[in-house]
Every structure is written in structure tokens, then in C-alpha cells.
Amino acid sequence: MLDDLDRRILRRMQDDPMLAPGEVADALGVAAARVARRLDRLREQGVLRGIRAVIDWRALGYEVEVSLRFTLDKTEPRAFDEFIAAARDVPEVVEIQTFLGKVDVRLSVIALDMGDYQRLYRARILALPHIADIEALMHVAVVKSEERLPL
């Protein structure tokens, strides 16, 4: 699916997604029109989905991150859909993952401090529907967080 030039373009875009096609072309030693066509094709194929801003929430004053693992009441047929819909409405929930196994859903939640987290937990998290069990894991450190793909 991807050839060597595609991979080189994607690696360059991972390094600096704001580069213009001409700048990518110059760095790779190929024609700008060729890079532009490749980028268009990669977008059309859904390989390159867009450019986004990555904001460090700690720089905005959020000091606490908690990973919450939920087991849902599976006797309720709409438990997953209703839980996820409600969790999406909590602004401090920055990630939602679903699983097969003992844990059904994991939420990554941020808070300004422990007092803010306690308020959020009591007012918004415990109010989520269909919770059978919940486990909180306090984040201590991020050892590896890599968005770059090994291309």
C-alpha cells in the first residue's frame, strides 16, 4: 500500500505537520508537484487524516490525571451506549476506551487538583449510568507517550 516515498513523506510530516508540500519536497529531494499528489492520495485513502493541535493540559493548570476503569451492568442492553454518551458529556474526560474482558470501559480524566477531582468524581463520574464497579488509578508519571508511527 505505501511505498518508500510515501513513508518518507509521512515521516517528514510527523516531524513537522505544518510543512508545506514544497518544503517536504525540498527536504526529500523530489518535485513539489509529486509530493502534493502523494499527500492528496494519502488523504483520499484516509492514511493522512489531518493536522491537529496537541495541547499540553498541564500548561493550562490541570495537575491531576486519573484512569478510571469501569465494569458495567451488562443486564441492561443499552448500558454501553448510555454510559459512553453520558461520559462524552463530561468535559474533563479526555479519552474513552472500550474493552472486552473484566473491564468494559476506561476513562482518562483530568482535574485541576485533588479537590477538583473529588468534586468531579462525586458530581459527574458517580452519576454515570450502569456502573457495576469502578477502579481508579492515579497517574504518577508518563513513561512513554508516542504519537509517531514507525514508518
Rank of each mutant, 00 (worst) to 15 (best):
R43G: 08
E44F: 07
G46V: 09
G46P: 03
G50F: 12
I51Q: 14
A53M: 13
D56W: 04
D56A: 12
R58P: 00
A59I: 01
L60H: 12
E65Q: 05
S67I: 06
L68C: 04
R69V: 00
R69T: 00
T71R: 15
T71S: 12
L72N: 04
L72M: 06
E76A: 15
E76M: 12
P77L: 11
P77V: 10
A79I: 11
F80N: 05
F80I: 04
D81V: 14
F83G: 05
F83S: 08
F83V: 08
A85V: 11
A85W: 10
A86Q: 12
A87Y: 07
A87K: 07
D89A: 15
V90C: 06
E95N: 13
E95T: 09
E95Q: 15
I96P: 04
Q97P: 00
Q97L: 13
F99A: 12
G101A: 07
G101R: 10
G101V: 07
K102F: 13
V103T: 15
R106K: 13
S108A: 10
I110E: 00
A111S: 07
L112P: 00
L112H: 13
D116Y: 03
D116W: 04
Y117H: 04
Q118N: 08
Q118E: 14
Q118M: 04
L120S: 01
